[in-house]
């Protein structure tokens, strides 16, 4: 779609393609390498848990809020979780502030599925009174600087913020006492931490952890979420197509990246 930054994006895409002709990425990375990842926890004091993640020049901030609510009728003794991702003018010149764009809805839902299908949060332990009260976890992700691969950055930050979160105190009527916390953390199984790995396909070449320029140059995105040796979700994005062999190969590469990223998330103090 046309926007003010179109010509700049076109030039960026040209540069990427030029460089790929001699099998090189502009930042000299290997095709299957992540950019440098830094994770900082507890960055938002008003949130129950939070994290800031830098993935190269992509920056996201995630905050977790825990509320008390009524459980869903089909899962009376389980808590709930929701992931929301917001792109706005703050994220970069390609985005506008306003009602959620389709791409932000897609990114948020792909990250949501990665965390949800890993089953790393024990939802049963989030029930307070079966059928009446439970803890609801809201994960809100704000993209503060978009430079590609928002899905992986959001998933890492979401997990880090969940690990950082403390369960707030509740009174005798099961209402949250704001600002007071129990010393309980969320019931997260460290063996089930999900890791999302995304690729961009540019003229038949697949690049792991694409930058914004690489995303402009390509027409197909593929995101796989893995948990140890298991595939827990994937999603093809954008308008291009992929072959079955490419999918299988990217799944294998994603699994090989698991330990490296999981360590980053779990080693945080």
């Amino acid at each position: 779609m046309s926007n003010d930054n179109e010509t700049m994006n076109l030039l960026a895409a040209q540069k990427v393609k030029e460089s790929l002709k001699s099998s090189k990425r502009l930042d000299n990375r290997d095709f299957n390498d992540f950019r440098e990842i830094t994770i900082e926890k507890g960055v938002i004091s008003s949130a129950d848990g939070s994290a800031k993640v830098k993935l190269g020049d992509t920056e996201v901030i995630v905050g977790v809020k825990i509320n008390v609510g009524e459980p869903y009728p089909d899962s009376p003794d389980e808590g709930s979780m929701m992931f929301n991702l917001e792109l706005s003018a703050i994220s970069g010149p390609d985005f506008y502030t306003g009602p959620p764009s389709l791409e932000s809805v897609e990114y948020g839902r792909v990250a949501d599925r990665a965390i949800r299908s890993s089953e790393c949060i024990d939802m049963k332990k989030l029930s307070i009174i079966s059928g009446e009260k439970m803890y609801m976890i809201f994960i809100d992700c704000y993209v503060t600087n978009a430079d590609g691969n928002l899905i992986d950055a959001a998933t890492i930050a979401g997990m880090a913020a969940l690990l950082d979160a403390k369960i707030p105190k509740i009174d005798e009527n099961n209402k949250i006492i704001y600002g007071e916390y129990t010393d309980q953390k969320l019931p997260i199984d460290m063996k089930k931490i999900p890791v999302s790995v995304s690729f961009e396909n540019i003229d038949g070449q697949t690049l792991l952890d694409p930058t914004a320029g690489e995303e402009f140059a390509g027409d197909t995105r593929f995101s796989v979420a893995v948990c140890d040796k298991n595939i827990i979700s994937f999603q093809k994005g954008k308008t291009g197509t992929l072959s079955l062999d490419q999918i299988n190969e990217m799944c294998e590469i994603a699994i090989s990246k698991y330990d490296q990223i999981k360590k980053k998330i779990c080693d945080l103090k």
Binding site: S117, S118, E119, K229, I231, F234, K236, I255
Partner: peptide, 10 residues
């Protein structure tokens, strides 16, 4: 189009 969620080995 390709979307999946679940928990399966490769």
């Amino acid at each position: 189009l390709l979307q999946m969620d679940g928990f399966v080995d490769i």
